[in-house]
Computed example of a mutant assay.
Amino acid sequence: MSLSISPAARDALAGWLDHIRALDNAAENTLRAYQTDVLDFLSFMTGHKGAADGLGPLLRITQSDMRAWMAHARGRGVAARSLARALSAVKTFYRWLGEREGHEPTAVLATRAPKFRKKLPRPLSPDAAKAMLDTVGIQNTTPWIAARDMAVVTLLYGCGLRISEALSLTGASVPLPDVLRIKGKGGKERIVPVLPIARDAVNDYVRNCPHDLAADTPLFRGARGGALSARAISGVVASVRMQLGLPATATPHALRHSFATHLLEAGGDLRAIQELLGHASLSTTQAYTAVDTARLMEVYAKAHPHGQSSA
């Protein structure tokens, strides 16, 4: 956009980016995306409000102004997903600006993002999932770290855990029982059976780990002994993905999808899988699987009383 923004707005944008860089340690690519999104917004508002001096006009934005910006963006061909991302950046900027200026940016924060269908990671094939497990454990030359990575990835695929759930386990969890009580999203608790392969993988890690895994400390540790980060596991999976020639959708979370899909393909009950995953809605579970409609109807017909009576 050719319009310039006021020096005060430009200084505010620079100050916000410095704040994020220092506080959140955000990657440069993320900062550039934030800068582009918020600068486009401020440029539009500068022209729309007909004023380029100071922050005043930008602090008096109404819901009508927000609708005008979103309509303008969609008119330029900005996709709903991209617009939602831009709105998130704008809201974050305005929260910071509002705190700095003693102003409540109600209209900005109350704006709803456009709806769009979220892309779910595609599950791996059974052979690809097995190859992933076989390869994860040989990525690191330090035995206990290799065992750790194997244990975490086995929990993702073998138990359908979210990566945050696996990394929230403590020393009190070992040895793993026959079933785990997992507290998932929204504090909802569910029961997850533990396969022998998962228990063995965790036991192997515990035997090799050089750190004291006290009951009230994280079970999975980083190389220096601190809590293991999700980013570290994502890096390992990315390395394996490239070695095996798997698509970019082969992420840690895709292993959870694979768990659900492969259970359903093997004849598992959709509602039982819903409980294992901790989904509040059955439709969410269905979206997480990659089984074709005919297969879903076959499972449904076998499980549903009406389907059984008419068979």
Rank of each mutant, 00 (worst) to 15 (best):
I5W: 09
I5A: 05
S6A: 13
S6G: 12
A12P: 07
A27M: 02
A33V: 14
T36P: 00
L42Q: 06
L58A: 13
T62P: 03
D65R: 06
W69A: 04
A71S: 12
A79D: 04
L87I: 13
T92N: 14
T92Y: 01
L97V: 08
E99A: 12
E99K: 14
P105M: 12
P105V: 08
T106C: 00
V108E: 04
L109K: 04
K115T: 11
K115W: 01
K119M: 10
P121G: 13
S125D: 13
A129T: 07
M132L: 15
I138Q: 15
I145N: 02
A147G: 11
M150H: 14
A151D: 05
L156Y: 02
Y157I: 04
L161W: 03
I163K: 06
S164G: 15
T170C: 09
G171F: 09
L176K: 03
L176N: 04
P177C: 10
D178F: 02
R181C: 00
K185M: 10
E189T: 12
E189W: 09
R190D: 02
V194M: 05
P196C: 12
N203L: 10
R207F: 03
A214H: 15
A214R: 15
L219Q: 09
L219E: 01
R221K: 14
R221T: 10
A223I: 14
R224D: 12
G226C: 03
L228C: 04
A230I: 08
S234K: 12
G235R: 11
V237L: 02
S239H: 07
V240M: 05
R241N: 05
P247I: 07
T251N: 09
S258H: 06
F259Q: 06
L263S: 02
G267H: 08
D269K: 00
R271M: 09
A272M: 13
Q274V: 07
S281G: 00
A290R: 10
V291M: 07
D292Q: 04
T293C: 03
A294L: 14
L296W: 00
E298Y: 04
V299E: 02
V299N: 09
P305I: 10
Q308P: 03
A311M: 10
